[in-house]
């Protein structure tokens, strides 16, 4: 993905800033955020599409290299890069699917979360919810008295859906910002605002930094 040859003359700083905007780096960032965040984040469809195109390109390149008998070491380096990108992409998609599986009812009934899924993921979630609902109904719910058969509510007397597992948004996450963000008020109030310095690590409740994660000002690690 990164062409190693061109940058040798550039300074380390330029190199860093260039590197941080390549798709590989962006994908890595999305992947890390997705891994660390308790809830599902917005699907980066453009990035995934670009990455997949890149991967295809690289696959073709590796194939051509092997056919033309290019130095095996070079080929294996390219292959390694390819493998890593593929892993990132797969792991990214996989992490999302596992979150969907886990909180499928919650995502299904919350429009905001539902819209974060890609088309295919929505299809997957629909089927997934259907499967799980069937399973629960067949094993438990159909055998219970009428008023207690909902999979969302404990009984007909409950006022809202009180049986849906939800992600714990107040879980602490470790995060880091590339820029100085200044004083930041955690929304549980009371405490002093936290001053977020560039490149420092912080452990904060996910709920309070959620907007920063969504706008990409802060990265989860």
């Amino acid at each position: 993905m990164e062409s190693g040859a061109g940058e040798s003359s550039a300074t380390a700083d330029d190199y860093e800033s260039l590197m941080s905007t390549t798709d590989a780096e962006l994908l890595k960032r999305s992947w890390r955020n997705e891994k660390a965040a308790p809830e599902i984040l917005k699907f980066d469809s453009d990035l995934v599409l670009r990455s997949r195109q890149q991967i295809q390109l690289m696959e073709e390149m590796v194939e051509e290299f092997t056919r033309n008998g290019v130095d095996p070491l070079t080929v294996s380096l390219y292959q390694m890069d390819l493998d890593r990108t593929l892993f990132l992409l797969r792991s990214y998609m996989r992490t999302r699917l596992q979150k969907i599986e886990k909180y499928v009812f919650h995502i299904d009934k919350t429009a905001e979360l539902w819209n974060r899924l890609s088309k295919q993921e929505q299809k997957f979630a629909k089927r997934c919810a259907g499967d799980l609902k069937n399973h629960l109904e067949q094993s438990v719910l159909s055998k219970l008295p009428d008023q207690y058969q909902s999979y969302l509510r404990q009984s007909a007397a409950s006022e809202d859906d009180d049986m849906v597992p939800e992600p714990k948004l107040d879980a602490y996450v470790v995060c880091r910002s590339k820029k100085y963000l200044g004083a930041f008020q955690l929304d549980d109030g009371g405490d002093e605002p936290v001053t977020i310095e560039a490149d420092d690590l912080y452990a904060l409740p996910y709920k309070s930094i959620k907007p920063l994660v969504e706008t990409g000002q802060i990265d989860l690690v």
């Binding site: 699917l97 997957f124 799980l132 067949q138």
Partner: peptide, 13 residues
């Protein structure tokens, strides 16, 4: 049954 259904769902995705 659930395992089979879910595997099929995953496969179709």
């Amino acid at each position: 049954e659930y395992f089979k259904n879910h595997a099929a769902t995953l496969q179709s995705y």
